[in-house]
């Protein structure tokens, strides 16, 4: 189906409408194997809706999703275990201990027994929570919950990791830690899609960036290429200014 082996994920005319309004509008994106793909956009641009369609949470009204060369929606059973999704919200159980949360979500991918125990240790170590493995998640600070949220999605060693604003509401140390970990995963072979409002973050870790507005991609490229769209001298402009120039200064989500 896919003639280009470098593409891990491709959407073709992906569309989602709510109340007759296209929240995601004929979206065509291609994610290359091994890249960290940044998806930027104002509130309500349709970033989460796009991620949710890729992840099987929201059903598209139209369009196809190709994942690892196959129609993802028709081959969920086979392909789901290659995908890891870190939601924008904290999808963890407060009354379960850290390791139990990781066990629950990792086991969904058919991992069991000693292998499961190994993956739990590994995932908790990865996010720096080994020491706190026996603490209830409800007792964790915001930053620790964010890290646990990540640990719950990586135990099955996915090839594509989708982070939906993983650094919301946490201190610079935790944020830095998470960004480093994303880069580390990427070095270890995972492809990453990363959505955020924080321009510096995106600029720091992403190899390619798309700017989304009103359900459409309005610009795509490296941060240099995006800056060139606005001015010739890329030293003189920040990604934030590019973003505001392209998407306008009006408030969104109103």
């Amino acid at each position: 189906m896919n003639e280009n082996n470098d593409i891990i994920l491709r959407t073709v005319d992906l569309t989602k409408k709510y109340d007759n309004r296209a929240v995601v509008d004929s979206l065509n994106i291609e994610i290359k194997k091994g890249e960290i793909f940044g998806l930027l956009g104002p509130n309500g641009a349709g970033k989460s809706t796009t991620m949710n369609m890729i992840c099987n949470i929201v059903k598209p009204d139209f369009g196809t999703i190709e994942f690892m060369g196959e129609d993802f929606r028709k081959n969920r059973k086979k392909l789901s275990r290659h995908l890891g999704y870190i939601p924008q919200h904290l999808a963890i159980h407060g009354s379960l201990k850290a390791w139990e949360n990781v066990e629950l979500f990792t086991s969904l991918y058919g991992i069991k027994g000693d292998e499961l125990a190994k993956r739990i240790d590994e995932s908790l170590a990865y996010v720096g929570l080994s020491e706190r493995r026996n603490d209830y998640a409800k007792k964790f600070s915001g930053g620790m919950k964010r890290r646990l949220n990540i640990a719950c999605a990586i135990g099955h060693h996915p090839d594509l990791l989708i982070f939906d604003e993983p650094t919301v509401g946490i201190d610079p140390q935790s944020r830095n830690f998470i960004l480093e970990k994303i880069k580390e995963s990427n070095k270890n072979g995972a492809t990453v899609i990363y959505t955020s409002h924080y321009m510096e973050e995106v600029e720091a870790i992403c190899t390619r960036i798309a700017i989304m507005d009103n359900g459409r991609i309005i610009a795509i490229g490296t941060s240099e290429e995006l800056k060139k769209l606005v001015v010739d001298d890329t030293e003189k402009i920040t990604l934030e200014e590019v973003f505001l120039t392209l998407t306008g200064k009006k408030l969104r989500d109103q």
């Binding site: 992840c55 099987n56 059973k77 789901s80 999704y85 999808a91 979500f105 969904l108 999605a153």
Partner: peptide
């Protein structure tokens, strides 16, 4: 949390 269950199919 049910979303995570959906993602895992």
């Amino acid at each position: 949390i049910d979303e995570r269950l959906l993602v895992s199919n």
